[in-house]
């Protein structure tokens, strides 16, 4: 009778019972306080692959290339680092990357903030949706495709030069230079910045702005003294992402710069695959990791993790 009635229970219940029994055998109650750690294991192992990769790169960077055999020497040395740090070529590559990161961060935030603000504050649902879709569509299209689009627009026979020709103006070299790379990067970073700014702007109540305006501040002063400071978590989050993504970018300088405006990542790639000097390339990679980490740590230390943290509140 008992077995009869239990067989009428949904099959799912039986499956769950079996699963629970197995789980209890494998992971007894005494272990339950470690359950949280168990859940973290797959992610920690996956990320550990990157740590191992960095260890290998660090190891390579400490061995000088033997020009007789084109292999790395057995002996440890800091030759690669001194070569990388004293070379004027690499110095200018590093300065160019940092300069571009500052420029791109500045222009991207300048363009992204009004977008995020209007999107969050839009009264009409249709306006909001239009701005969201216009943002997500390019966000979901990768760097290579977008760079290709810019090639068609800015190229020798491209849209802009054709327009110039129609107006009787001479063709201009709009591609393979620094401004083209900056333009491509700003366009690429814009969705990242807006998406990291938007939650911070949402958190600012409309009433705060109203209060500021009813106390006599015009909108610019309200923006400068109320909205911008209160949007700090978003500004921090988007600055970190835009700055580091630009600092470490490869595709835009490669495609839109055409070899004239190498960033650090391009120098690393060339070190490995053109000079076949994996030691020097690795040293450059370690320098880039250090630069990027230093920037993130300094900014987090000064301003908190902003909208970047996983648990949603500023640490």
């Amino acid at each position: 009778m008992a077995s009869n009635s239990s067989s009428k229970l949904p099959r799912r219940w039986h499956l769950f019972d079996i699963a629970e029994r197995n789980a209890a055998a494998l992971w007894p109650k005494t272990m339950h306080r470690y359950s949280g750690y168990l859940l973290l294991v797959p992610a920690i192992l996956l990320v550990f692959v990157l740590v191992l990769g960095l260890v290998y790169i660090g190891g390579y960077s400490l061995h000088e290339l033997d020009l007789a055999t084109y292999r790395l020497k057995e002996t440890f040395s800091l030759t690669n680092y001194s070569a990388a740090l004293t070379s004027t070529t690499y110095q200018s590559v590093v300065l160019r990357s940092i300069g571009a990161s500052i420029l791109v961060t500045f222009f991207t935030l300048l363009l992204a903030f009004p977008y995020a603000y209007l999107m969050v504050r839009a009264r009409q649902a249709a306006t909001k949706k239009f701005l969201l879709i216009s943002l997500f569509l390019p966000f979901f299209i990768g760097q290579i495709v977008r760079a290709y689009g810019w090639l068609i627009i800015l190229g020798q026979e491209g849209l802009i030069n054709t327009l110039f020709a129609g107006l009787g103006l001479p063709a201009m070299d709009l591609i393979y230079n620094y401004p083209a790379v900056i333009l491509g990067l700003v366009q690429y970073m814009l969705p990242f910045a807006v998406l990291l700014l938007a939650p911070a702007i949402t958190a600012i109540g409309r009433d705060v702005e109203l209060a500021s305006e009813s106390l006599g501040a015009n909108w610019m002063r309200t923006f400068l003294h109320v909205v911008l400071p209160m949007a700090k978590p978003g500004l921090v989050g988007s600055s970190v992402v835009v700055f580091t993504l630009t600092l470490t970018d490869f595709a835009m300088p490669e495609i839109l710069g055409g070899g004239t405006t190498d960033f650090i990542a391009n120098a690393i790639y060339d070190g490995f695959f053109q000079l076949s000097n994996s030691g020097l390339g690795s040293a450059l990679a370690m320098i880039l990791v250090t630069l990027g980490t230093a920037f993130v740590v300094i900014l987090f230390f000064l301003a908190g993790t902003g909208t970047l943290g996983f648990n949603g509140r500023e640490q």
Partner: peptide, 19 residues
């Protein structure tokens, strides 16, 4: 767990290529 974002992609790519 944020390391994949803070390690530059070029370094992640090279590291995994070697590993």
């Amino acid at each position: 767990l944020l390391l994949p974002f803070t390690i530059p992609l070029v370094a992640s790519g090279l590291g995994m290529m070697i590993f």
